[in-house]
């Protein structure tokens, strides 16, 4: 392409510009690579895992890492590497499902609150504020406790706990949008409020929503690991990083490798989601350039 052609080319679309911005952010790209690797590990776990994650063995109880078992074996002789790979399923599922659910609960309520105003807004806003007043993990533990110990219930508990952030985000954007000239014009043309919400406000919310969702996934993964660590998430013998750390704690002196690898996995995946979230924020919102 010659220089003259480049000059007359139409301006870059916002999407492409954001994409270019994102890929200039080296750490964010690193985060994306790590996230992709973990997603691949979760999806192709049966192909990647060297052993069956549930296969116990009396002769292999708590063996140190070796050529046959890279990450060692656990208290039931199960391969730790296989369990870490399969554990990615519980963690990523919990993170993605819980946050999707949280957004599906939070965004419509937030839009409703922001656009309707009055009592609806007061009530929704107050409930969201009240929920945000309880520290995240405490609320999630309480909800999971009352719902009963199971991975599905842990996800639901995390989703409910994470939803007020999305309510607040959507409400703020809706309020901001409501007072713009174009919203005024759309209303004057006779658009009903729901159309205003879906066609005019929602697309504007998508960039900050993506950023928030990515950062929320990081938080949700830690929350799932914490709940599973407490026995409120994934139930044994199914592998999950949190519950692996729970049993590892009892064998710290004899089998430290059991405690190291699941933790490294949580750390890496959470770090990666945080990096992608930061990268997305810088790429999508030119106002929030942090540096």
């Amino acid at each position: 392409m010659s220089a003259t052609q480049a000059r007359v080319a139409p301006p870059e679309s916002p999407f492409r510009r954001a994409l270019r911005q994102f890929f200039r952010h080296r750490l964010a790209v690193f985060g994306l690579v790590v996230v992709t690797a973990f997603v691949a590990a979760a999806v192709f776990a049966p192909l990647l895992a060297p052993y069956d994650p549930l296969q116990t063995s009396w002769t292999l109880v708590r063996k140190a890492p070796s050529a046959a078992h890279w990450f060692g074996t656990d208290e039931n002789g199960r391969d730790v590497l296989a369990r870490v790979i399969y554990g990615a399923r519980a963690s990523l599922m919990a993170g993605v499902v819980a946050v999707t659910l949280a957004a599906l609960i939070g965004v419509p309520l937030g839009l409703l609150a922001g656009l309707s105003g009055g009592w609806t807004e007061t009530i929704i806003g107050r409930v969201a504020d009240a929920m945000l007043a309880v520290p995240f993990l405490i609320l999630a533990i309480a909800l999971a406790a009352f719902l009963g110990p199971a991975l599905e219930n842990a996800m639901l508990a995390i989703a409910i706990t994470a939803s007020p952030v999305f309510v607040r985000l959507a409400r703020g954007m809706a309020l901001e949008a409501k007072n713009t000239d174009w919203a005024e014009a759309a209303r004057a043309l006779g658009n009903p409020p729901w159309r205003l919400a879906l066609v005019h406000v929602l697309p504007n919310i998508i960039p900050p929503l993506m950023v928030q969702a990515t950062l929320s996934i990081a938080e949700a993964i830690i929350a799932e690991a914490s709940l599973s660590f407490l026995g409120l998430g994934q139930q044994p013998p199914s592998p999950s990083w949190g519950s692996m750390l729970n049993s590892a704690q009892r064998f710290l002196t004899q089998a430290p490798w059991m405690a190291i690898y699941p933790g490294v996995a949580i750390f890496l995946v959470v770090l990666a989601f945080n990096l992608v979230g930061d990268g997305l924020r810088d790429a999508l919102d030119p106002r929030s350039q942090r540096r």
Partner: peptide
């Protein structure tokens, strides 16, 4: 960033 991404309980286990 590393501090934010480290699960608290794992850090505790590693310190022990």
């Amino acid at each position: 960033l590393a501090g934010i991404s480290t699960p608290n309980f794992w850090l505790g286990i590693m310190l022990i």
